[in-house]
């Protein structure tokens, strides 16, 4: 299968290793990876801020870039949800409505793609360490992804998965929310990070780098001990 990667802008510039890890995993499973270079941002920042015309202007670009893709895989549940759930609404009753529906239908969040589309549970990874998993809210509630990342983690050799209390609680990132309401956002991170630290793990893993930016940002400043954040793909890429 020819897999087209959607690498959201912040993964592209802040976490290129995450996208590289995705490439590695997908290629290891025998599939071809494509990365159309014209892609930029899904348009979620203006969309979430209420600037839908501006979001559409950016989103149109992505509709064009991914038009010919067979399947589109996103390394962020949130940006994946933008394609899958919000584009159809954003483009409802416009000329691009059907293009948005088509992109929505072929977009997958990374773990869901591996488990549901490819039917893979064991990607042949080895990772020594205790890990807890954080559910990104968009992946969890917009896309309904809950079991897939855990299935994948359970099949990683050497990895011990420890669930935290309130795994489904929001980390407080929320895009522009994190900077518009830094105190509230940080209070949410505090609660989340306390439950991560309480598990005694060495790593917190998520399928959304935006949550990890918030979690790592809080942990690095406040955590009494080192807990490292990793994207699911980075764990699955290790052999």
């Amino acid at each position: 299968m020819r897999v087209t990667l959607f690498v959201p802008c912040f993964i592209d510039s802040l976490y290129p290793g995450v996208a590289m890890a995705m490439v590695k995993v997908i290629e290891r499973l025998g599939h071809e990876v494509d990365y159309p270079e014209g892609q930029t941002c899904c348009g979620q920042p203006p969309f979430n801020s209420g600037y839908w015309d501006e979001a559409r202007a950016v989103a149109e670009r992505q509709l064009a870039v991914f038009r010919d893709a067979e399947v589109v895989v996103s390394g962020s549940g949130s940006c994946g949800a933008m394609f899958k759930v919000f584009y159809p609404e954003l483009f409802a009753k416009t000329a691009q409505e059907s293009a948005a529906q088509a992109l929505s239908a072929k977009t997958y969040e990374f773990s869901e793609f591996l488990v549901s589309k490819l039917g893979v549970r064991d990607v042949g990874a080895t990772f020594e360490g205790k890990v807890t998993f954080h559910d990104g809210c968009h992946g969890l509630r917009e896309l309904g992804t809950k079991a897939a990342p855990r299935e994948l983690l359970r099949h990683v050799k050497g990895l011990e998965l420890i669930e935290m209390g309130e795994a489904e609680a929001c980390c407080g990132f929320g895009g522009m929310f994190a900077v518009k309401f830094p105190q509230i956002s940080t209070a949410m991170a505090e609660v989340k990070c306390n439950s991560i630290v309480e598990t005694g793990v060495e790593y917190v893993v998520s399928n959304d780098s935006s949550c990890l930016m918030q979690i790592q940002g809080y942990l690095s400043r406040h955590s009494p001990r080192v807990v490292k954040s990793l994207h699911l793909a980075e764990v699955l890429a290790r052999t």
Binding site: V7, D12, S13, L14, Y15, P16, A19, K180
Partner: peptide, 22 residues
């Protein structure tokens, strides 16, 4: 400031994924 007042900001990569891919 709104971010870094309470949290660390990640280190930007020297090379973006787009450039690595190319």
């Amino acid at each position: 400031h709104a971010w870094t007042s309470t949290r660390e900001f990640p280190q930007a990569a020297t090379t973006s994924f787009g450039d690595l891919w190319r």
